[in-house]
Nucleic acid binder design. Structure first.
Length: 147
DNA sequence: GCCAACGTTGGC
DNA sequence: GCCAACGTTGGC
Protein backbone atom coordinates (compact mmCIF):
# COMPACT_ATOMS: atom_id res chain seq x y z
CA UNK A 1 0.00 0.00 0.00
CA UNK A 2 1.68 3.13 -1.25
CA UNK A 3 1.57 6.51 0.37
CA UNK A 4 3.63 9.60 -0.17
CA UNK A 5 5.13 10.32 3.25
CA UNK A 6 4.60 14.04 2.68
CA UNK A 7 0.88 13.21 2.54
CA UNK A 8 0.69 10.45 5.12
CA UNK A 9 3.73 8.64 6.52
CA UNK A 10 4.31 5.67 8.79
CA UNK A 11 4.99 8.16 11.59
CA UNK A 12 1.60 9.71 10.99
CA UNK A 13 0.09 6.27 11.43
CA UNK A 14 2.09 5.69 14.62
CA UNK A 15 0.61 8.85 16.11
CA UNK A 16 -2.88 8.40 14.65
CA UNK A 17 -5.83 7.76 16.93
CA UNK A 18 -5.91 4.03 17.61
CA UNK A 19 -2.92 3.79 15.24
CA UNK A 20 -5.60 3.34 12.60
CA UNK A 21 -6.40 5.16 9.39
CA UNK A 22 -8.83 4.98 6.52
CA UNK A 23 -7.08 4.34 3.23
CA UNK A 24 -9.08 6.95 1.35
CA UNK A 25 -8.35 8.66 -1.92
CA UNK A 26 -7.68 5.69 -4.16
CA UNK A 27 -8.97 6.71 -7.60
CA UNK A 28 -7.84 3.91 -9.83
CA UNK A 29 -10.17 1.06 -10.70
CA UNK A 30 -7.63 -1.73 -10.48
CA UNK A 31 -6.39 -0.55 -7.11
CA UNK A 32 -9.98 -0.17 -5.94
CA UNK A 33 -10.80 -3.70 -7.03
CA UNK A 34 -7.88 -5.09 -5.07
CA UNK A 35 -9.20 -3.38 -1.95
CA UNK A 36 -12.79 -4.42 -2.60
CA UNK A 37 -12.24 -7.97 -3.79
CA UNK A 38 -9.00 -9.17 -2.25
CA UNK A 39 -8.42 -7.43 1.06
CA UNK A 40 -9.99 -9.16 4.02
CA UNK A 41 -10.15 -8.52 7.74
CA UNK A 42 -6.86 -9.45 9.36
CA UNK A 43 -4.86 -9.42 6.15
CA UNK A 44 -1.37 -8.00 6.44
CA UNK A 45 -0.23 -5.04 4.39
CA UNK A 46 3.11 -3.46 3.69
CA UNK A 47 3.19 0.32 4.09
CA UNK A 48 5.29 1.72 1.26
CA UNK A 49 6.68 5.25 1.06
CA UNK A 50 6.63 6.51 -2.52
CA UNK A 51 7.76 9.69 -4.28
CA UNK A 52 10.29 10.57 -1.62
CA UNK A 53 14.08 10.58 -1.11
CA UNK A 54 14.14 6.98 0.14
CA UNK A 55 11.28 4.96 -1.31
CA UNK A 56 10.62 1.64 0.39
CA UNK A 57 8.61 -0.32 2.93
CA UNK A 58 8.41 1.48 6.25
CA UNK A 59 5.99 -0.61 8.28
CA UNK A 60 3.43 -3.36 8.62
CA UNK A 61 -0.31 -2.88 8.88
CA UNK A 62 -3.38 -5.05 9.18
CA UNK A 63 -6.78 -4.62 7.58
CA UNK A 64 -9.18 -3.75 10.41
CA UNK A 65 -12.20 -2.83 8.26
CA UNK A 66 -13.07 -4.25 4.87
CA UNK A 67 -14.04 -2.08 1.91
CA UNK A 68 -16.75 0.55 2.38
CA UNK A 69 -17.57 3.77 0.47
CA UNK A 70 -14.84 6.39 0.63
CA UNK A 71 -16.62 9.49 1.98
CA UNK A 72 -14.20 11.91 0.33
CA UNK A 73 -15.72 11.13 -3.08
CA UNK A 74 -18.91 12.95 -1.99
CA UNK A 75 -17.15 15.93 -0.42
CA UNK A 76 -16.94 18.79 -2.91
CA UNK A 77 -14.27 20.47 -0.79
CA UNK A 78 -12.01 17.42 -0.94
CA UNK A 79 -9.18 16.88 -3.41
CA UNK A 80 -10.66 13.44 -3.90
CA UNK A 81 -14.17 14.66 -4.77
CA UNK A 82 -15.68 12.77 -7.70
CA UNK A 83 -18.67 14.56 -9.23
CA UNK A 84 -19.54 11.45 -11.21
CA UNK A 85 -20.07 9.38 -8.10
CA UNK A 86 -23.13 9.42 -5.86
CA UNK A 87 -24.33 7.97 -2.58
CA UNK A 88 -26.68 5.50 -4.27
CA UNK A 89 -23.92 4.00 -6.37
CA UNK A 90 -20.58 4.85 -4.77
CA UNK A 91 -17.71 4.48 -7.17
CA UNK A 92 -14.80 4.43 -4.72
CA UNK A 93 -14.12 2.43 -1.59
CA UNK A 94 -11.56 2.40 1.15
CA UNK A 95 -10.42 -0.03 3.81
CA UNK A 96 -9.17 0.83 7.28
CA UNK A 97 -5.75 -0.32 8.40
CA UNK A 98 -4.15 -0.52 11.82
CA UNK A 99 -0.46 -0.36 12.55
CA UNK A 100 1.24 -3.62 13.38
CA UNK A 101 4.63 -2.00 13.72
CA UNK A 102 6.94 0.51 12.18
CA UNK A 103 9.95 -1.27 10.68
CA UNK A 104 13.40 -0.26 9.59
CA UNK A 105 13.18 1.04 6.03
CA UNK A 106 13.42 -1.72 3.45
CA UNK A 107 14.52 0.34 0.49
CA UNK A 108 13.38 -0.10 -3.06
CA UNK A 109 17.03 -0.51 -4.07
CA UNK A 110 17.47 -3.48 -1.72
CA UNK A 111 14.21 -5.07 -2.87
CA UNK A 112 15.22 -4.71 -6.50
CA UNK A 113 18.32 -6.83 -6.11
CA UNK A 114 16.84 -9.47 -3.81
CA UNK A 115 16.40 -12.77 -5.66
CA UNK A 116 13.26 -13.67 -3.72
CA UNK A 117 11.44 -10.49 -4.65
CA UNK A 118 11.76 -10.33 -8.40
CA UNK A 119 8.07 -11.13 -8.87
CA UNK A 120 6.86 -8.35 -6.60
CA UNK A 121 4.33 -6.22 -8.46
CA UNK A 122 5.70 -2.98 -7.15
CA UNK A 123 9.07 -3.72 -8.75
CA UNK A 124 7.69 -4.32 -12.22
CA UNK A 125 8.41 -1.75 -14.88
CA UNK A 126 5.70 0.83 -15.25
CA UNK A 127 3.98 -0.16 -12.04
CA UNK A 128 1.85 2.72 -10.86
CA UNK A 129 -0.88 1.11 -8.82
CA UNK A 130 -1.14 2.37 -5.27
CA UNK A 131 -2.51 -0.98 -4.07
CA UNK A 132 -0.99 -4.25 -5.26
CA UNK A 133 -1.31 -7.83 -4.05
CA UNK A 134 1.64 -9.64 -2.46
CA UNK A 135 1.89 -13.44 -2.61
CA UNK A 136 2.49 -15.59 0.47
CA UNK A 137 5.98 -16.35 -0.81
CA UNK A 138 6.81 -12.69 -1.32
CA UNK A 139 5.34 -11.81 2.06
CA UNK A 140 7.53 -14.43 3.74
CA UNK A 141 10.65 -12.94 2.15
CA UNK A 142 9.61 -9.40 3.08
CA UNK A 143 8.84 -10.41 6.68
CA UNK A 144 12.26 -12.02 6.95
CA UNK A 145 13.95 -8.87 5.66
CA UNK A 146 11.92 -6.67 7.99
CA UNK A 147 12.69 -8.70 11.10
C1' DG B 1 13.11 18.41 -13.84
C1' DC B 2 13.04 14.47 -16.96
C1' DC B 3 10.78 10.82 -18.93
C1' DA B 4 8.74 6.07 -19.38
C1' DA B 5 4.63 3.90 -18.62
C1' DC B 6 0.05 3.66 -18.19
C1' DG B 7 -4.91 5.32 -17.44
C1' DT B 8 -8.54 8.34 -18.94
C1' DT B 9 -10.97 11.31 -21.99
C1' DG B 10 -13.47 12.59 -25.86
C1' DG B 11 -13.99 13.30 -30.86
C1' DC B 12 -15.18 10.73 -34.64
C1' DG C 1 -15.38 1.12 -30.35
C1' DC C 2 -11.03 3.15 -31.90
C1' DC C 3 -7.22 5.87 -30.86
C1' DA C 4 -4.71 10.29 -30.32
C1' DA C 5 -4.00 13.51 -26.92
C1' DC C 6 -3.47 14.48 -22.49
C1' DG C 7 -2.75 13.81 -17.43
C1' DT C 8 -0.63 11.33 -13.64
C1' DT C 9 2.67 8.54 -11.27
C1' DG C 10 6.96 7.88 -9.44
C1' DG C 11 11.87 6.60 -9.80
C1' DC C 12 15.94 8.68 -10.94
Amino acid sequence: MKSEPSEFSIDDLVSAKGQTTGWFGVRNYQARNFMRDEMRLGDMGFFYHSSCPEPGIAGLVTVCNEAYPDPTQFDSSSDYFDPKSNEEAPRWVQVDVRLIRKTKLLSLAVMRVHPGLQTLRILQKGNRLSITPVTEEEAAVLNELLT
